[in-house]
Design a protein around this nucleic acid. Structure first.
Lengths: 151, 151
DNA sequence: ATGAAAATGAAAGTTGTTATCGTTTACCTA
DNA sequence: TAGGTAAACGATAACAACTTTCATTTTCAT
């Protein structure tokens, strides 16, 4: 019962491909399946190497293009923390969330705070802005990495 | 009375250079002066071309290195909105602020909301995190660019 | 003024992303 | 089920932004 966990998302992806008159290929299937199977925030390189375990001939460009499709379909979301490469995460059905990142061990947690969202919208309104999306990232030390976890 | 506006920051920069046993050069002076003189969110390319108006021989690498120093000294801050290049902004004496960006015309406004900051710290605490910095960016449409500013 | 250490500018090297191109594959139609 | 065509593939070239290298120039404490 390993496959069934992602099957709903895979189906959604296939539906998207059909809608857009795109083709279902083995590569797309394996990449999507790998992606849906990992917990979070994976880079293209990582995705490529995991996908190749299932289908060795996959090329970087295909992973790149497939992730673009997944992002367009709304099933994946890009995130760029600090520097380096773009990472991708599953878009949770539950809705939007923000990130809290440990600057020591790079642990990434997700959270959602409705009150903050409200204040954001409110603040934007003051400037005559209509917010369509936002990015909130908290950087700091997690419990394990705190500089002084004094008694 | 044009120069005096930046002189405090220039002095702070020179102080930083001394502290670090680094040298004061014409290039560093002109780049810093140009940077402190612009309102906000300038890219390296822009900074290079402005600096060259005052000192034509300046090279890209020097601007790059000088901005790195200014960032390390705490007088400048990097910001990466959406894609493309890193931009730099003056670090305001008033303290931290966040950004609200128009996705149509790229206008960038700054704001600060104490309540949001508090909620962030509070949220982080729940996860055992100690926040040292954060990034909050609101993307949307400004008053001028709103899709439908209906009556 | 002098010389050691640091800074500079030009250009090469990196890194991560995107486009190109000839070959292969999916999938509609008969 | 075979055939044709548009789409997708993989390899690799091209790009863009950033960073480093290196020979030469400059700063600054004698």
């Amino acid at each position: 019962m390993n496959k069934s966990r992602n099957s709903l998302k895979i189906e959604a992806f296939n539906r998207y491909l059909q809608q857009q008159d795109l083709k279902s290929t083995k590569q797309r299937y394996y990449i999507a399946d790998v992606f849906f199977g990992v917990s979070s925030h994976i880079s293209l390189e990582e995705l490529l190497s995991l996908s190749r375990k299932r289908y060795p001939a996959i090329g970087y460009a295909t992973v790149y293009r497939t992730m673009k499709l997944l992002t367009e379909s709304g099933l994946a979301a890009e995130s760029r923390f600090g520097e380096g490469q773009t990472r991708f995460e599953n878009v949770p059905e539950k809705g939007h969330h923000d990130h809290i990142i440990c600057i020591k061990c790079s642990k990434i947690l997700e959270f959602h705070n409705e009150k903050i969202e409200e204040l954001q919208a409110e603040t934007a309104k003051k400037f005559g802005f209509k917010v369509v999306r936002h990015k909130l990232e908290l950087y700091g030390y997690c419990g394990d990495c705190a500089p002084k976890s004094t008694t």
